[in-house]
Amino acid sequence: MPIVELKVWRGGDDGEYQTFHVEYDEGEVILDVVHRLQSTQAQDLAVRWNCKAGKCGSCSAEVNGKPSLMCMTRMINFTSGDVIAISPMKTFPLIKDLVTDVAWNYENARKVPHFKPKERDADGKHRMMQIDIERGQEFHQCIECYLCQNVCHVIRDHPENKENFVGPRFFIQMAQVNMHPLESVSQKPDALEGYGLDYCNITKCCTDVCPAGIKITDNAIIPLKERLIDDKFDPLRWLGRKIKIGNSK
């Protein structure tokens, strides 16, 4: 078997890169090599993983600086003699080795508006046309790997923004609720305010790294920004809000 040189971050904030030489097979992915390293040379190497098929979003890391899922990064893309550096995601507090504290994401998951459906049809069923749900289905493909959050410079370079900005993953979730054909309540004028949509300046870094191929910026963030602006500045809606006649449903 050929051998690859891995530089892997070990330890917490005060840790360092350690160099390992590990056997690999061309048909493998980085995660396989990390597992081999773990079982033969570094038993206590901390790494998250579950499905090994790009469906659960657990094994996010930065491979040679590129935010990636380790289970979807194939060794065939490297040549013998290459050095591969594997680091934890930078935007989140480091726990140990390749594992970071992603709790901030779960807090945001509780913060964003939740779905409430309108009433069912008389026969107890809901009717929706395929064409109307496809936009939402795209957002439902999110595997919560948080690579989009990791790469977003609003928080990557300015951690202080985390308080006022939920990040691309949760803009998708807001869009998913907002554009759901059965949605009944969360489309009030202020429903999109307070999540930091205006911080995003549409550099599309999130879209570039999304392993599920979701067009985060084009299909979620830009339409939400437009709705937010519409709601805020439409004179009729403004008047309606002033004299309190219903909402923008």
């Binding site: 779905f115 459906p117 069912r120 069923k125 809901h126 009717r127 929706m128 439902h140 759901h180 059965l182």
Partner: peptide
């Protein structure tokens, strides 16, 4: 299944929207 839909799941649809 209908309950999951009530929670927000988006299942693929038939031509008449079921």
């Amino acid at each position: 299944v209908l309950e999951l839909e009530e929670y927000g799941a988006l299942f693929d649809r038939t031509e008449d929207g079921l």
